[in-house]
Write a protein that binds this DNA or RNA. Structure first.
Length: 154
DNA sequence: GCCAACGTTGGC
DNA sequence: GCCAACGTTGGC
């Protein structure tokens, strides 16, 4: 089973928003980076577990756990001229951008903050703590995933 | 194909 | 608000 981290700005869409969404599920749309797109389209599998990470928050932190309930399919927002993520260069016959559906599993008892992750030796190699790392979809090691969840359940 | 300019991300 | 890091664009 795969493990991932998805970034979101909580002002735009938070883990609580995911909990309130119909079926506690949402399409993870709007990702416009090719490396992240490849993970969404090719890497993420049904049943994979996901850390939902709040970026541009104070402090930035992992807020909860979700799971992939639908594998990669074309992101509809790329075809909607009224959407902020509209991409006029993407043709429906050859979609450029993909999304998955994720469902909330549970909110952590407490958020696990970026400074805390940074201070934890076993987590220091995670992409999210690397300087200048902007990728909004990142693979996570199983041990790292479990440790963060354990920290968040204390 | 190179690379300067520009835009975006995201921590601080 | 600043700015480092990085990706994309476009002139040549």
């Amino acid at each position: 089973m795969g493990h991932w981290l998805l970034k979101t700005e909580p002002d735009v869409f938070s883990f609580d928003d995911l909990l309130r969404a119909p079926g506690r599920t949402t399409g993870w749309d709007g990702v416009r980076n090719y490396q992240a797109r490849n993970f969404l389209r090719d890497g993420m599998k049904k049943g994979d577990l996901v850390l939902i990470y709040h970026s541009s928050a104070d402090p930035p932190a992992v807020a909860g756990v979700a799971e992939v309930v639908r594998e990669g399919y074309p992101d509809p927002s790329q075809f909607d001229p009224k959407d902020d993520h509209y991409d006029p260069q993407s043709a429906p016959a050859a979609p450029r951008w993909y999304q998955v559906d994720v469902k909330a599993v549970r909110k952590l008892a407490r958020p696990v903050s970026l400074p805390e992750i940074r201070q934890t030796k076993a987590l220091a190699k995670m992409p999210v703590v690397q300087r200048g790392q902007r990728l909004s979809v990142q693979p996570v090691g199983a041990k790292e995933f479990d440790l963060i969840v354990r920290m968040g359940e204390q």
